[in-house]
Amino acid sequence: MSKPAIVPETTTAGIAVDPRTLERVIPESRRPDGSIRKEKKIRPGYTPQEDVRRFRGTRQAQAEANALPKGHIVGWAPPPKAAAVPVSKASMTKAQKKNEKRKEKRKEKTVESEKVKDNWEEDDDEGEAEGTSTATKEAPSVDREGVHTANKPNWAVAPDTKKGDDAAAEGLADKLDKLEVR
């Protein structure tokens, strides 16, 4: 035998089946003032007015079952949903060809950035010798949330210097040199 539901299904009038005794009851509830209403037993066979369904004859019930959805036009069928057909390069406009090239380049960049390096120690040594790390050279073109860029400022996050803003860094260093602490 399966376990009873934690929250039993109730009718419109609030009647539920007690999982322990399998009797129909209105479960106890809390009043707005904090006091608790007692659980009420419902005698067998009683159906409150809220739970009485509207009478439908057999023909009416059959007609409603066969009825078309509201707003449906007789004889109209929605167009079939086919997969997107790839457009040949000859029928593309200049802008479409340009956008297609951009998409391919973006895919290539993400594939390159996802590759795992074989030896991390060698890469770190090379980056330190040049003065910049390899992480600053290869910035993935993924638009992340929470990153501060010129196009998308986020003042809660420190400025993103991965894009090679060496001139901005030098300008900031000059400003810090000019500041005097008294």
Results as ranks from 00 to 15, higher is better:
S91A: 13
R54H: 09
A67K: 07
G45W: 07
N119W: 00
D33H: 08
P48V: 10
S91V: 09
P153S: 05
Q96K: 05
P27F: 02
V87Q: 14
E138I: 09
V111L: 13
N99I: 07
R56Q: 14
V85N: 10
A129I: 14
K103V: 02
P78N: 04
V147F: 04
S113P: 03
S29G: 15
T21V: 08
A63C: 11
E9S: 06
K41A: 06
A65L: 10
I73L: 01
T110F: 07
E64K: 08
K101S: 08
P78K: 02
R144P: 01
R144W: 10
T136E: 09
A139H: 15
K115P: 00
T47H: 09
T110L: 15
E50F: 08
E23V: 13
A13S: 06
R54C: 11
A95D: 05
N99E: 14
G45H: 06
P19K: 05
K101L: 05
E112L: 15
A95V: 01
R31A: 10
K152A: 03
E23A: 01
R53V: 07
K152G: 02
D33M: 06
S91R: 12
G57T: 04
S133G: 05
D143W: 14
W120I: 07
S88H: 03
P32F: 03
K41S: 12
W120E: 15
E50V: 10
M92W: 11
K109L: 12
E114M: 11
E104D: 12
Q49K: 14
A65S: 05
R20Q: 15
S29D: 13
E9V: 05
G131I: 11
N154I: 02
P48Y: 07
F55S: 07
E23F: 14
K103A: 10
L22W: 13
R59C: 08
P32K: 05
N154T: 12
E108S: 12
E130K: 08
S29W: 12
P27L: 00
R106K: 10
R56M: 13
R56S: 14
A129C: 01
N99C: 00
D51E: 03
T47N: 06
I73P: 00
A150H: 04
M92H: 03
V111S: 05
A150P: 00
A83N: 11
S133A: 05
R37M: 13
A61I: 09
D118S: 13
P79A: 09
T134E: 11
K70M: 07
A83W: 12
A90R: 14
Q62S: 09
E50C: 00
Q49L: 11
V74W: 04
S113M: 13
G131A: 01
E39G: 03
K98R: 15
